[in-house]
Amino acid sequence: MTQTQDKPMETSLPQRTRTYTWQDPLIGAGAAPGLSGLAYLRGMARGDFPPPPIGQTLGFTIGGEEDVQEGRVTFRMRPEEFHYNPIGSVHGGVYATLLDSALGCAIHTLLPAGVGYTTLDLAVKYLRPLQLGLGEVRAVAEVISVSRRVATATAQIVDDAGKVYATATTTCLVMRPERAAAQPIRASGAQETVAQEAGQ
């Protein structure tokens, strides 16, 4: 009994290993302020800039330039064993990271050069478990509105058959240079409402 408490029981279960590589993320981060969000993300999809290390860590990516459109971005991922939680399915944090990435990038596609953004909130609804053997799934994000200071977007994770595994919405703070922020913008409908609510 004392030996068990002092030394964990050794097992003969097979061990898994995984090796991956990434590039300097500051290369792309340094180029981003000089490009529109659309141009930057399409450049990343072409391989002009390194993908973010979080994508290498979790195994998700933008497939190609066709996955980056104005106001719409698609990320692709194949559920793997290294994504699993203790109860045998993909961890909820993986869903959230995949959705947050797609949502933020969709908003980025509508921002001009020199304008940044950051997530204010992320709401995720988990509908079905992602598991090994499902094949590739997609996180498809679309922008709802962009005002001077606030942007909103929605996304869902779907498989090739169109089955939905999770949905999410986000609100992002848009960070414009001081001079640009002082210029009036034209807004209508939902954008005007969001701008008013943001105190603009």
Rank of each mutant, 00 (worst) to 15 (best):
P52C: 08
V158A: 11
A151E: 07
S89D: 08
F49M: 03
E70T: 14
L98W: 04
T61M: 10
V90G: 00
Q69E: 15
I62V: 14
L120H: 07
Q131A: 13
C105K: 03
P112R: 02
R72I: 00
G114D: 12
D159P: 11
A151D: 05
L127Q: 14
R72F: 01
L134A: 05
Y95S: 03
G63A: 15
S101V: 10
D159N: 15
P86Q: 05
T97I: 01
Q69D: 03
G59F: 12
L127N: 11
T57K: 04
I62Q: 08
L130F: 01
S147L: 14
T61F: 15
H83K: 13
I87D: 15
P51R: 08
G71C: 10
L130D: 01
S145G: 13
G104R: 12
S101W: 02
E142M: 03
T152Y: 02
Q131N: 10
A141S: 05
L111W: 01
V124K: 01
V68N: 00
A113V: 13
A45L: 03
F75D: 00
A139V: 04
T109Y: 01
G133R: 15
E80H: 13
S147V: 03
L58K: 02
L130S: 03
S147G: 15
L111C: 02
P129W: 04
A141Q: 00
D67I: 00
P112S: 06
F82A: 05
V140C: 01
H83W: 08
R149A: 12
G104V: 12
P112L: 10
L127T: 04
H108V: 05
D100H: 08
L134S: 11
A151F: 00
H91S: 12
G63S: 14
S147T: 15
A161S: 15
E66K: 02
R46H: 09
I107P: 00
A139T: 09
V68Q: 04
G135T: 09
G162C: 09
Y126K: 06
H91C: 05
Q56E: 15
S147Y: 08
G135R: 06
P53H: 09
G104P: 04
G71Y: 08
M44I: 10
I144S: 06
E65P: 11
Q69H: 06
G47K: 13
T118L: 09
I87F: 13
E66Q: 14
D160Y: 08
V164K: 04
E80Y: 05
E81S: 13
A155Q: 03
I62D: 07
L130Y: 03
G71W: 07
G63N: 14
E81C: 06
P112F: 09
Y117R: 10
P51C: 10
E65W: 12
L110P: 02
L120T: 10
E65A: 14
T57C: 07
T152I: 09
L134T: 11
V137T: 14
V146T: 11
G55E: 09
C105I: 02
H108C: 04
C105W: 10
